[in-house]
Amino acid sequence: MIRITKIFTFETAHVLYNYDGKCKNMHGHSYKLFVTVKGNPINDLDDQKNGMVVDFGDIKKIVKSQITEVWDHAVLVNGVSPHRELGQDLEDKGHKVIFCNYQPTCENMLYEIADKIKKHLPGNVSLAYLKLHETENSYGEWFAEDQV
């Protein structure tokens, strides 16, 4: 079994409903996402992907279409909180708003990222690990073996 990792960056803002720290104000981050998948390298001379677990380009297509293109330069808003009205007002004024059904913390974003990526991986490849940096020294991690 081999694990391979691809790294992505995107800019996203979020606003945390009912948070009691200075991050209660809408703010953004330069997120850095590490996506690690695992599988056995293809062992078939006739396969164009021979020797690969999965083409890094295929991982890029999945993450780009499901996460980075969607969330980049958007505002994540807890759509099941009173902040829905704030998000609607921003959207009405032309801003890109993503209404989440959760508090848009790094931790909860990892759950959504994992769900979206897993649905699009080839059958012989599985998601092993995610790391999402909000800042250079603050990040959350998702491990497949921790999920029940």
Rank of each mutant, 00 (worst) to 15 (best):
T68N: 10
E145H: 15
I2S: 13
K32S: 08
Q48W: 05
K60T: 11
M52K: 09
V53L: 02
K32H: 04
R3Y: 10
W71G: 14
P82C: 03
V53H: 00
E107T: 03
D44R: 00
D115E: 14
K64S: 15
E107A: 05
H95N: 09
E136P: 06
Q103C: 05
N137C: 09
R84E: 08
I4P: 04
M109F: 01
D92A: 15
C106Q: 07
H120E: 15
L76F: 09
K49P: 00
K119A: 15
K49D: 12
Q147L: 03
I62C: 07
Y111A: 05
Q66Y: 05
F34E: 15
Y102S: 00
Y31L: 05
P122C: 02
Q147P: 04
N124R: 11
E134L: 09
E112S: 11
I98L: 01
L45V: 01
K96G: 00
L130N: 10
L121W: 04
V53T: 00
N40K: 14
V70D: 04
M109S: 11
Y31R: 08
Q48M: 10
K38I: 04
L76E: 05
G57M: 10
K32W: 06
H14E: 13
S126N: 11
Q66T: 15
G21E: 04
K64C: 08
V63Q: 10
D20V: 06
V80L: 05
L33T: 12
K116I: 02
D72W: 06
V75A: 08
P41F: 03
D55V: 07
H95P: 00
L127G: 12
W142K: 06
L127H: 10
R3H: 10
S138H: 15
